[in-house]
Structures are given as C-alpha cells and as structure tokens.
C-alpha cells in the first residue's frame, strides 16, 4: 500500500476544481424541451417558456469564445477516425488509446486491427499536453493485440491494458477486448 500523498492528490484536485463552462445554448435546449411539457399547476404557462426563448437578447461572444468554437470544429474534424480508416461496420465502437511519452517525436498505434502496419495509425499529441499521445479507432467485438511504436524503433506496451502473455516475438504487446453486451 502507498502512503497518502497529499501533494499528488492536491495537484489532482487543483486541476479538477478549475471552472468548467457550458454554452448557454444548453439553457435554451432545456427551456425548449420543458416548454413542450405540461406546466405545473399554474397552467397555460408553456407560453412563458416560449417567450423566454423567443425574446430578443444580446449574445455575448468573446473573441476567445469564437476561437474556441472554431477550434472545436477543427478538432472534431481532425479527430474523425475515418480520416484514416474505411467506414466501420455497424457493430464497431470507437476506442481511445492513450499513452504518455514525453520524449517521443512520433508514436504509432500498431496491432491486429491495422495489419500491424506502423504507418496506418499515427497517434496525435494532445493539444493541451504534448507528452500525451492519443488515437481513436473503431473496433468490432473481439480480442486484439497491439502495442505502441515510439520513434519507429521502440515497442511499448500500453500501461493501461492487460499484457499479451503469449508474446513470442520478444517485445511487449497489450490486449484490448471489445465486448458486445
């Protein structure tokens, strides 16, 4: 067992306590939805919700906010898995792979799902933290062996996944299992 590490936990908590903001469009979605529900006993006041929705208002959008929205679209577009893959079968689910490799220049995700082709799935650096590499791929149910290839030479198993015990090639591999229920 580890001794309590107040500093480490404190660091985690500081990260997590940062404010998270949600676009006020959420308010409108909620109000629109409840406008279709029966009003509480006052009656006839769904109109009030509609009035709230339809009244003129000023939407403040800072330059940073606009940038965030634009950048979010870019990230969504870039992170679409079919940028690298053929259309996935209907039963496929997206799986995210993450590895922390601070000194790497390139990292590839290589495994049973991409013919062990190191060129097929280059991992992307997380924009907020250059030491974190991620890839998202669709997988159909099954058990897949895989590993990360760092800088084209070093094989690294996924520290977050079970190891492939039947490893005959002298370098570590990991296993991801995709279920159906």
């Amino acid at each position: 067992m580890f001794e309590a590490d107040e500093e480490l936990v404190g660091r985690v908590v500081r990260h997590l306590r940062r404010p998270v903001t949600v676009d006020s469009a959420l308010d409108e979605r909620v109000m629109e939805q409840i406008a279709h529900l029966p009003a509480h006993r006052g009656g006839g006041t769904a109109r009030a919700a509609w009035r709230w929705l339809t009244r003129a208002r000023t939407v403040r959008l800072s330059p940073l906010g606009a940038l965030a929205i634009a950048a979010a679209f870019v990230v969504v577009a870039l992170s679409r898995p079919d940028r690298f893959y053929r259309a996935a079968p209907a039963s496929a689910r997206e799986f995210g792979f993450v590895v922390v490799a601070p000194r790497a220049a390139t990292v590839s995700l290589v495994g049973d799902f991409n013919d062990w082709d190191a060129a097929r799935t280059p991992m992307q650096r997380a924009r907020r933290d250059a030491s974190v590499w991620t890839a998202v791929i669709p997988l159909t149910p099954g058990r897949y062996r895989y590993a990360f290839l760092v800088d084209g030479v070093s094989w690294v198993a996924d520290p977050a996944a079970p190891v492939a015990r039947d490893d005959e090639f002298g370098t570590p591999s990991s296993v991801v299992t995709v279920g159906g229920s």
């Binding site: 149910p141 079970p162 279920g179 159906g180």
Partner: peptide, 17 residues
C-alpha cells in the same frame, strides 16, 4: 448464452496478471 469472447479474454488477462 451470449458470446464467450469477453469471459475468455478476461480469464486470459487475469492469468497474465
């Protein structure tokens, strides 16, 4: 009755652990 893929994989992974 359902697929055995995951139970078998869990069994294997536990042994590997």
């Amino acid at each position: 009755r359902e697929s055995l893929t995951v139970p078998l994989a869990v069994l294997t992974d536990l042994v590997a652990s």
